[in-house]
Nucleic acid binder design. Structure first.
Length: 264
DNA sequence: ATCGGTACCTGCACGC
DNA sequence: TGCGTGCAGGTACCGA
């Protein structure tokens, strides 16, 4: 579920944990723990204090006092929850000197891993969409001969954009999802850059999109789903021209677009 | 090196 | 009620 705006909202909602101490940690059945040793990680975390919590694209990086990083990715259904009871899909429990933090993930596409050094998975990512310069964006766009929708989903191009915000940005920019990135010319690179900026900024302000069950660490739903113009609106009228929104598959992902506003 | 397709996992909505 | 199908904010990995 979570793309950049949702992960940003989660990070903000757990910022109050900075300075807290992890008393103990428990990991259950973990596919999510990516081959790491649950007991060793629990022992490593016990007694350590949280120094910083930052977001890089869709990754959450928790820096620990004394060095080392806890890397968390929410996958499709991952949730970090402050307080509450452990359930069927709770895979990690962090007992803090004040309160408890749970990691919940029904589909188990998320991950939790420890890294002594700054995580390589994060170092490999492209720039933050809200920090990248237009010049760099335009240059990178021109260099890629792939379909624009697939490129927006590529975390090495920009980090943090997922299926919802890719579709929403392309709609706002009037670009067809199958357009070849390098052949997007004229004012359209600028329009796409601005559209990405606008849609992410608006979504963060709205606390993200809650399609089915996304919530922040305090259990609050976002409301940017009410601002979606094409995502999951197949068959409904385009808000600009009334043409029914269409859906097609690009890179095995649903892409929603207006065939009139987004010509090939 | 770059691509596009598949695998991973659970839950839900739908048609029969 | 149950069963099969398709779909869902994710990334990693494979072969071409």
């Amino acid at each position: 579920m979570p793309e950049l705006p949702e992960v940003e909202t989660v990070v903000r909602s757990i910022a109050l944990l900075i300075g807290r101490r992890i008393v103990s940690a428990e990991f259950r059945g973990l596919r999510v723990l990516r081959g790491g040793d649950p007991d060793r990680l629990a022992a490593n975390l016990a007694g350590r204090r949280i120094a910083a919590i930052r977001r890089y694209g869709k990754f959450i990086v928790i820096s620990m006092e004394g060095g080392g990083y806890l890397l968390i990715h929410l996958g499709m259904t991952g949730r970090l929850l402050l307080g509450g009871d452990a359930g069927k899909h709770t895979h990690a429990i962090f007992n803090l000197d004040e309160g408890v933090l749970l990691y919940d993930d029904s589909r188990q596409f998320g991950s939790i891993e420890w890294s002594d050094d700054f995580p390589k998975r994060v170092a490999r990512l492209g720039p933050e969409p809200l920090e990248a310069s237009f010049a760099d964006f335009a240059r990178a766009l021109k260099a890629r001969h792939t379909r624009i929708k697939a490129l927006l989903l590529d975390q090495r191009f920009l980090r943090g954009i997922g299926n919802i915000y890719a579709d929403e940005a392309l709609f706002r920019a009037g670009i067809h999802p199958l357009a070849t990135a390098s052949r997007i010319g004229g004012v359209r690179p600028r329009r796409l850059f601005d559209a990405i900026h606008a849609v992410l900024t608006e979504a963060i302000a709205a606390g993200g999109s809650s399609i089915s069950d996304y919530v922040d660490a305090q259990g609050r739903r976002g409301f940017f789903q009410f601002g979606h113009r094409v995502y999951q609106r197949t068959g409904e009228p385009c808000l600009t021209c009334g043409t029914p929104i269409r859906r097609l598959l690009v890179a095995q992902r649903s892409s929603h677009y207006c065939p009139r506003c987004q010509r090939r």
